[in-house]
Amino acid sequence: MSVWHAIAAAALFAAAPALLAGEIPPDARRSGYSFMGPDTRAMQDDDTSNPGMLFVLDGQSLWTKKSGSAEKACADCHGDARSSMKGVAARYPAFDNALSRPVTLDQRINLCRATHQQASPLPYESRDLLALSAFVAHQSRGVAITAGDDPQAKPFVAQGRDLFMQREGQLNLACTNCHDDNFDKHLAGAPITQGQPTGYPLYRLEWQTLGSLERRLRSCMSGVRAQAYDYGSPELVALELYLMSRARGLPMETPAVRP
């Protein structure tokens, strides 16, 4: 083998990100969409039958509604969301320099409300917060996920990965035991997915409403009989960040529909 071949091989090896044990290679990553039945897929695909779009419509009106004592609307600073918010959700949770930690899209909306609108924060899972984050994330539909690429976010991605690999609860299961090792199999009647968070906030038929990734994570934690972390806790944000970085390259689907 020539020197050039050796260099080319070494370069190829260096360019491919090292996969850790149990991780799903990029070309095998699949959205939860591919695990669903045809009826639920059809529901997501048609914007007039996707109930998540009702929340996007609500978010659209909130975007231009003045709020807080500063009497400002989101649109007064950010303008037309179709251009200003395109691709934003695909890189969240994102590192915030002032706080020196990553923040989720929900937290960013509330930070914006506190600093620029001088408005009270919207509670987690409230209709208005879900509607606004669905509207913002909808602008990224089809955009490839890049969250976690920021070097400053790396320690938090690692923290999230540790949590993902850590067994917990009375059933003593880690996220990885189902979502890396056993996807495509079934848990009772339901398919086990890879847990790729491509469509949040998403409409879950079981919930009969839109819900955040944190809500989904908390219900998985209750499922393994563990004490779920609080909404907005550093652990949930780190997990969310790791999951998004794990879904790197998959297109955003917000608002997705899931059973």
Partner: peptide, 8 residues
């Protein structure tokens, strides 16, 4: 409230 209507 928001409604989504699909009529050709």
């Amino acid at each position: 409230m928001a409604a989504l209507i699909n009529v050709p």
